[in-house]
Design a protein around this nucleic acid. Sequence first.
DNA 1: AATGCAGGCAACCGCGAGGGT
DNA 2: GACCCTCGCGGTTGCCTGCAT
Length: 543
Amino acid sequence: MSMTSDSEEWMNSKNGTDSPTVDDNSSSGNMGANGPLKKGPWTSAEDAILVEYVTKHGEGNWNAVQKHSGLARCGKSCRLRWANHLRPDLKKGAFSPEEERHIIELHAKMGNKWARMAAELPGRTDNEIKNYWNTRIKRRQRAGLPIYPPDICFQASNENGQNEEMTAFSSGDSHHPDYLPINHFEFPHVEFKTMELDQLQYPTTFLDLPSEGLLDVPANSFLPQGPNSSYPQKYLLSTVYPSKKFRGAESLFPGLDSAVGNTTLDENQYQTDSSIQISQSFVFPSSFDHTSTPDHASSSSALAGAHVVLNSNTSSSEPTWAMKLELPSLQTHTGSWGSSSSPLPSLESVDTLIQTLPHENPHSCTLSPRDSGLLDAVLYESHSMKNSRNTSFHQTSNASIMSVHDMMDTLSHDIHETEWEAIAEPISPLCHSSSSIFSECTRISRNSFDDLHSSETFPVKDEAVDDLIQMKHHNLTEVKSQMVFSTPDFLLASDFFIPKKDQSNNHYLLKDALGTLLCDDLSKDWKQIDKSDSCSWNAMPTV
DNA sequence: AATGCAGGCAACCGCGAGGGT
DNA sequence: GACCCTCGCGGTTGCCTGCAT
């Protein structure tokens, strides 16, 4: 759009009016055509001018608006004001429940792509959605609730999983709905939850690594994603924290307990049973655990912990990785990852997170399992795992059962020996980080299952689920005793070895344990657990 | 009533993409 | 290819308001 003499006439006509542009220049810094540019809240007079101008000349060429309308606002500000407040098609007022639901779904799929989300929500602006989301995050963080409802969790993961599947087979047109494989949404509702919990229960990514190699895995692939399944990452990944919060990570999570994993499943919600600790261990706490015990830190930090870990060695500097921490959501990022035949890692979500890794001393042996030594600890773990895996394997082979963590060790072994080690050059923080992530995942998983065995305590912290958990505790304990967590069957029964459709009742266990929004279904679930036979698990072939 | 605090929202800032020259 | 300009996006900041103390 080009400004014409018509514009000039319009401008001149406005300059004689009550333009607010000259009444307040206190906050200006730049000089516009009509004097200092104003900043701060818009006045109704300014709005009127802008509306009139845009109505007459249309949108676009916003700098011309500033030049020709007499507004002492930069074009950027004009565009923003128009787009966010003055557009006639804007929908005012609070988000409807349907819109909220849609936003959640969109965010699960897109992440912080506010503009794209706004495009899906007529009458809503990206800024509005962004603010809503940030508010929502904080609110749920306070409440200790997961960011995503479980059903959305599953849906988005499923969609992404589908995309990833298609990507694996075809680099083109993978998003065409006709190409989508099984529509998991068609499963009964209960089945949904079952599967997502199963996936949550079994961190498939830890074991089932993509053939492309880790560096080709998007960040969200570090979350459990079975070969045919995706993972409710929303439960696991810490979501967007305003970066300013991370600036004061310690102050941000003063008590740890109240803040850990708030953007995911509240950690507290997982600590209601020993079984819960399984899922807890796969949760990606969003917080920097400075207060917990080393064991706790290691077991509960998981991959968000990996985020932490990756940056934990940044010594005195603030966790700059957090400055661009974007909730990966479950997005396959269809535009960049999913449809790409070369699924390079999402640098935004992987590399960015690790870009502040210290290049120096990547093999630091000043290991500390927590605080400043997390990165080192992970690196060390990666090495020590390699060194000890054989021993560990043989030792556990002698046992009547093969512990889960050893299994993980074993499974991770091959990966380490192949892709991982091949790419893990010291000069590449990314490589190290990737392997470290995996190592940490494996280690965490191991520790978690160890915790499972040993834990007899049930630190119920979330009062909201306290009663429910207590009621279920007895049943859960009973079922847990039948689950044979320590057997390979347990893992083999999980979704990285069997198709989703074949997954069954075992999912219900941690559903309860999660103690999230699924409480209303628990009675039904537990009834099903009671009816279910554990044979389907144990019947799975062993390693 | 005064004060402090947190939540919510509007606006700004920095950056990058895209297009034109 | 380099440079400039415009635009849009996402992150961040600051202000206003309501609530609790």
